[in-house]
Amino acid sequence: MIHVSNLTKEYGNRRAVNEISFKVEKGEIVGFLGPNGAGKTTTMRILTGYLPPSSGKVEIGGYDIMEHSIQARRLIGYMPETVPLHQDMTVYEYLKFMADLRKIKNAKQRVNEVLAQLHLEERASGYISKLSKGLKQRVGLAQAILHQPEVLILDEPTIGLDPAQIIEVRNLIRQIGKQHTVLLSTHILPEAQQVCNRVLIINKGNIIAEDTTEHLQARLAGSQRVILRVRGEISPLLPLIEHTPGVLRISRQNDDTLEFETPHAEDARPQVARAAIEAGFELLELHAVSLSLEEIFLQLTHEDAPVPMTTSEPAEQ
């Protein structure tokens, strides 16, 4: 549904988006992750036709966003990061106005449906200027889904919501994502993990990683960390498993716990377990801890940060 190729955007001399390409298929929920100023909002603004690209091509449902802008825009529902709403209108008036601009048939009925879906019925006759941040966010989401768009583009959709609302909005996005295409930007990593099928990590205008959340974790962590816990003192076990094939680094965490690394390709866990039991230890725990998306994100977006899994050299300074 969304097809981006070699998209570049320059503001004067500064290149905000640098030759990025990606595709989002129908029924996919894709997360757009990146630190502030990475180019997420700029990319979304180009995708929605608000900003023209400096070069490159964007197609929404087969329509070029520059050449067939109106047709492409009809397919898109968009909620910008700042949720700009007309403060001088009531919630109902505003949604009716947007519905009319979208030429929705039975606009009144549809507005009422969306109001109910987002639990805004009680606030329908209240002015938008009087709403809290969370409620405005919901109105912003309501206008984005009014016309049941094929493509939903959401810039930081859960920012400013309370935990219950966040869960609601995530459920709503998942529900919409079953039939439609969703691209959402976020910096809340667990959110991407929970909601998205796939994430794109963008930094300084470049897509630096693109994969499903599970694969990304696995791929970036070429090896996994394994925690081993036994009853009693663990120290005598150290020399025993140190030379087991596949065990990379080993360190004692506690009296009864140690941690070692083993590559995915050559999992040493069965050998370690056997060694421990044969040596008469009572094995309590043996499990792999994968890198959290958070750690991966930091690894990818901070150039200077040491990357613990791929380099063994400690960072200088």
Binding site: Y50, R73, L85
Partner: peptide, 14 residues
């Protein structure tokens, strides 16, 4: 100034 232009200009209107 208020940013509402962004939603108007991304709506399917000329």
């Amino acid at each position: 100034r208020s940013g509402t232009l962004e939603l108007l200009l991304t709506a399917p209107i000329h």
